[in-house]
Write a protein that binds this DNA or RNA. Structure first.
Lengths: 123, 123
DNA sequence: CCGGATCCGGGAAGATACTG
DNA sequence: CAGTATCTTCCCGGATCCGG
């Protein structure tokens, strides 16, 4: 934990895993699906701005990594539900910390960004 | 640089902020720089696999967002140190949770991935 | 020692149209 | 309702050379 040399540099399997979570839509989908089994169209509505294609692709990726379970009900019309696995729920807990951090400091960050851009403006 | 306003980031400033943290190298750099002021070459060594270019670009982005402070010592040869700001330190705390999650479950994830690939193999 | 500038390939992502 | 398929565009990221 409090090691002097952080093990980030060795082989970096962590970065590999995080790369998948770090996709543009993954976090949004995980947060949207955290409150229970969610249907495809519900996700399409909740994760605003996402396209059908990217929703499908990201869902497949998350399913492949064992973060989401896809359940198909052979009804008419078809119905598919996505549920977070246990490890995804654990992940969601840390994601909550991340999002609250972002909420808490988004003003400061926006300000810092403006200040930086103003300073590096080329008149 | 001049970030064009996309409809997604308008509605969701959190995603916009997280998008920057979610870059391929940002987390590694933040973790590597967390233990104190770090020089450019030290980061280049610690965040193994990163190129000079990406290191520079990511550092600039983090600096722009007010997560890193860049201090230039006008010596010969030049010496530059990067230090985490307070909000970056807060972020680093949640990042620790994220990385330990990844460490803890990377085996499970790798297994799930293999299982998924085996099942969806096309004979 | 710490970068910036440029060229270029590949994957991510949008738009659109079609299907079981 | 829940996806596929295809095409195109964009920008991330590596390689390389140059500069203070």
């Amino acid at each position: 934990m409090a090691d002097t040399a952080s093990p980030v540099t060795e082989a970096c399997p962590i970065v590999e895993v995080l790369d998948h979570v770090a996709g543009k839509w993954a976090i949004g989908i995980l947060v949207a699906a955290a409150h229970g089994p969610v249907r495809f169209t519900a996700l399409e509505r909740e994760v605003e701005g996402i396209s059908r294609r990217m929703l499908t692709l990201t869902l497949r990726k998350l399913e492949r990594d064992g973060l989401l379970v896809r359940t198909v009900y052979p009804t008419v019309p078809p119905r598919v539900e996505y549920t977070l696995t246990d490890i995804a729920r654990e992940l969601h807990q840390t994601l909550v910390g991340l999002t609250s951090w972002a909420e808490k400091h988004r003003g400061t960050i926006a300000e810092a960004r403006r200040s930086y851009d103003r300073h590096s403006a080329t008149p």
